[in-house]
Write a protein that binds this DNA or RNA. Sequence first.
DNA 1: GAGCTGATTCGAGATTCGTCAAGACAGGGA
DNA 2: TCCCTGTCTTGACGAATCTCGAATCAGCTC
Lengths: 119, 119
Amino acid sequence: MSKQRESVLPIAAACCPPLAVAPLSGEQAADLAPMFKALGDPVRLRLMSMIASTDEVCVCDLTDAFDLSGPTISHHLRVLREAGLVDSERRATWVWYRARPQALKQLAGLLDIATPAAV
Amino acid sequence: MSKQRESVLPIAAACCPPLAVAPLSGEQAADLAPMFKALGDPVRLRLMSMIASTDEVCVCDLTDAFDLSGPTISHHLRVLREAGLVDSERRATWVWYRARPQALKQLAGLLDIATPAAV
DNA sequence: GAGCTGATTCGAGATTCGTCAAGACAGGGA
DNA sequence: TCCCTGTCTTGACGAATCTCGAATCAGCTC
């Protein structure tokens, strides 16, 4: 991530109507599934929530919150980054992570239920 | 699924504020991650969209839509079912699947972005 | 009851994933 | 310049996942 060329992300590729409105094509599903998959691990879901609930987070703070090794946290952050859910930026010694609201919004829209009364 | 006792699902366990509002606890993340994980496979994501976009779908129709064997489709449907995302019901010879709007709504709420202006 | 159709479960093989230890790289301070 | 701190990458291993064929179960029709 030292290189910022990952700004070309799979986000724009998929912009679909809610699941409850129309079925996805195979291609759309293949584009979107990695995002859900990235959130499908408890550690990554918690990392995502920690990153999204503040403006920026330092890796050092994230590492301290888990009983996992540094490389493991780094690996999970990389998965989130490659899924387009977060951005990273090196600033002096530390690396800071920031959420990508676009991506979260896209997933939320996909899961939106057309019938609010449905229970 | 022949037995309907799976109606006791992990849904009620987790009911959390949006990711962008407060970080998840380890327990909350462990409850929610399986749902995202279930949607993290292209085949399952497409199955979910096919089920959610109509009232009910017969397994036979789902199987026909993929180049996969029956047991494989059955496996993916089981994952969706155990994650609490769909319900199944046997009616005569056929088994019908239905989405659980509660679950989709919960996930959508979790991904909701507090700042609609954010881009 | 016998036979048929549809769906699930079981068992096995190949692939992917999660984790860590060791090494490499980037940047700041003496 | 050299060393130290902090982070990422690489390589490796066990565990979980995806897929299929074969066998099993559920229900209808004759």
